[in-house]
Amino acid sequence: MRILFAEDDESLGELTEHQLQRRYHSVDWVRDGAEAKTCMQAGAYDVYVFDWMLPDSSGIELTANARAAGDKTPILLLTARDAVQDRVLGLRTGADDYMIKPFALDELDARIHALARRGDSVYRPDQLQVGELSANPARYEVTRGGVPVALTRREFQLLVCLMRHAGQVLSREQLLDHVWGIGAGVTLNTVDATVKLLRKKVDGPFAAKLIRSIYGAGYRLAVPNGEKAHV
Rank of each mutant, 00 (worst) to 15 (best):
G167V: 04
R81Q: 11
S171D: 04
Y140M: 14
L170C: 09
R117G: 02
R153S: 05
V149R: 15
D71C: 04
P148W: 05
G94W: 01
Q157K: 13
I75A: 03
P55I: 05
M163H: 07
Y140N: 15
S58W: 06
H113F: 03
A83S: 14
N136P: 05
S121D: 05
G167P: 10
G119P: 08
V84T: 11
A138R: 15
Y140Q: 15
L108W: 08
D109Y: 01
S57D: 15
E155F: 01
R172E: 15
G145N: 12
A114E: 13
R124F: 04
L170N: 09
E61G: 02
Y123A: 12
L162W: 06
D106C: 00
R117D: 12
A68T: 02
S57A: 13
E173Y: 08
T79V: 00
Q168E: 15
V169E: 11
R111K: 13
A95V: 01
F103C: 01
L76F: 00
L170T: 11
V142G: 15
E173C: 00
G146R: 12
T143Y: 01
K101G: 06
R124G: 10
M99L: 15
V130G: 12
K101W: 02
R124S: 09
C161E: 10
A166T: 11
T63L: 00
Q85R: 10
L108T: 10
L77G: 02
T93E: 06
N65K: 09
I100L: 14
A66R: 03
V84M: 08
D109F: 00
L91V: 06
V160A: 12
D97Q: 03
D109C: 02
Y140K: 15
M53W: 12
D86S: 08
R153N: 03
E61V: 12
D109S: 13
F156W: 06
V160F: 01
M53G: 04
L89H: 02
R172T: 14
R111A: 03
A166D: 11
A95Y: 02
G119A: 03
E173I: 04
A150S: 14
A66Q: 05
V169I: 15
R164Q: 15
L89S: 03
D51N: 14
A135R: 14
A166V: 03
V88C: 06
Q168I: 00
R111N: 05
F156Q: 05
Q127R: 15
E173D: 14
T73I: 03
A166R: 10
A69R: 14
G145H: 08
R154W: 02
G90K: 03
M163I: 06
T93W: 01
L133C: 11
P137R: 12
Y123H: 13
L151G: 10
H165G: 02
T73V: 09
A69W: 00
G119V: 02
D82Y: 00
E107V: 12
L159T: 07
A104S: 11
T63S: 12
E107K: 08
L62A: 11
L91F: 04
Y123W: 14
A64I: 05
Y140W: 13
V149N: 13
A69C: 01
R144A: 11
A135W: 09
F156R: 08
L159S: 10
H113W: 01
R67M: 04
P148I: 05
A68W: 00
A64E: 13
R172W: 01
T73D: 04
M53I: 13
G94N: 11
L76A: 05
K72Q: 11
K72C: 04
T152Y: 00
L108D: 06
